[in-house]
């Protein structure tokens, strides 16, 4: 029995070896010679060099982006220095420029997006991993991925022509009437453009990204941990709260930070729906601008070279914020391990 199997294995091995070794190769050939060998060495070296150069190009490209952007912002930097970041006015007529209104607009619109998309995305991911019947799972998952594929300019178009008017006529006046006393739900704009609308559009962009990462995270939680929880007589929700979410929380944080990065950097759709403005207002229905949308809105040119340079300074700020946010998220993602999240 054993010998039979051994013989069979040997036969297979020999057959493989015969197929592999070209019969014309003289077995006595010296180990390092022949033109083919040299050609191979050159080929290996060439491929290695070319691919290494391509990889290097990635690094150089990122470096060049950082360098070029900082370089472009230099002239506004030498005029304003760090004071630019805290200056509240953006007045092309009097040539006074500051970034604070746009930092504020970026923060508020991203915050709105994050507050709405966090529960939504986690809920979707939980539905897809824990609840959805097998057949539905794939379809719903792909449809939500399709949401991420809608170009931002199309979402912006929809935001300005469909969502904005709807919000202006229905939701915003209602919120203003009912919750206006809080102070953040001020009088709506007639067009429905403003920070809140921008936040909603950003939500649509952020949700599929965060949901798809969270879905992967939840699938990584070992099934026997979840069974261990259910075997204690806990409900599915108690299991999720007690085991699934704690085991994935740093991953969820990273997913939300990546979503934040997306929201901060989105220019086009936000430009279309945010209304444009340089005042800092606590009314979320009011118009404003984010760093990215201010730059995008000024694409047709600036009135003065100082304004142009200030716009480039905004770009540098956006780049720095974007890089920091992304690096943080990437570092967390790389450290993620669902089994090492001990309390």
């Amino acid at each position: 029995m054993v010998t039979g199997a051994g013989a069979r294995l040997r036969a297979v091995y020999v057959a493989c070896a015969m197929a592999a070794v070209p019969t014309t190769t003289p077995t006595t050939a010296p180990l390092r010679s022949g033109r083919r060998r040299i050609g191979d060495r050159v080929g290996d070296g060439a491929l290695r060099t070319i691919t290494a150069l391509a990889a290097l190009a990635v690094v150089v490209l990122l470096g060049a982006i950082v360098y070029k952007i900082l370089h472009l912002a230099h002239s506004a930097w030498s005029t304003y220095g760090l004071h630019f970041v805290t200056a509240k006015t953006w007045d092309p007529v009097h040539k006074a420029f500051g970034a604070l209104p746009f930092i504020y607009g970026t923060a508020i619109s991203s915050l709105i997006a994050l507050l709405i998309s966090a529960p939504l995305a986690i809920g979707i991911a939980l539905y897809l991993t824990e609840l959805a019947p097998k057949g539905v799972r794939g379809v719903v998952g792909s449809l939500i991925e399709m949401l991420a594929a809608i170009p931002s300019v199309v979402l912006g178009l929809w935001g300005i022509l469909v969502l904005g008017p709807f919000l202006a006529n229905h939701l915003e006046p209602w919120l203003h009437r009912k919750l206006g006393f809080i102070g953040i739900f001020g009088a709506p704009e007639a067009t429905g453009t403003g920070l809140f609308t921008a936040g909603l559009i950003l939500t649509i962009m952020v949700v599929p990204i965060v949901a798809s990462i969270c879905r992967e995270l939840f699938m990584q939680v070992p099934a026997d941990l979840e069974e261990g929880a259910l075997a204690l007589g806990t409900t599915r929700w108690e299991m999720i709260r007690g085991v699934t979410l704690p085991a994935t929380r740093s991953g969820i944080a990273a997913a939300l930070i990546l979503g934040l990065g997306r929201a901060l950097g989105e220019a086009i759709a936000v430009t279309q729906v945010i209304g444009g403005g340089t005042r800092i207002t606590n009314n979320v229905f009011g118009p404003g601008d984010t760093l990215a949308s201010k730059i995008a809105a000024s694409y047709q040119g600036a009135a003065s070279s100082l304004e142009q340079s200030s716009l480039l300074y905004l770009g540098a700020l956006l780049l720095i914020i974007g890089l920091v946010v992304n690096l943080v998220a990437q570092v967390i993602v790389r450290r993620f391990d669902p089994l090492r999240e001990a309390r």
């Binding site: 070992p222 026997d224 941990l225 069974e227 261990g228 929880a229 259910l230 075997a231 204690l232 007589g233 806990t234 409900t235 007690g242 085991v243 704690p246 085991a247 669902p338 089994l339 090492r340 999240e341 001990a342 309390r343």
Partner: peptide, 21 residues
């Protein structure tokens, strides 16, 4: 079933402690 499992506990093949203390 939740009530059932509360009365009838289970220990699994592979030790599966939660990632907690």
């Amino acid at each position: 079933p939740v009530e059932v499992r509360r009365r009838i506990g289970m220990v699994f093949q592979r030790p599966n402690p939660f990632p907690k203390s």
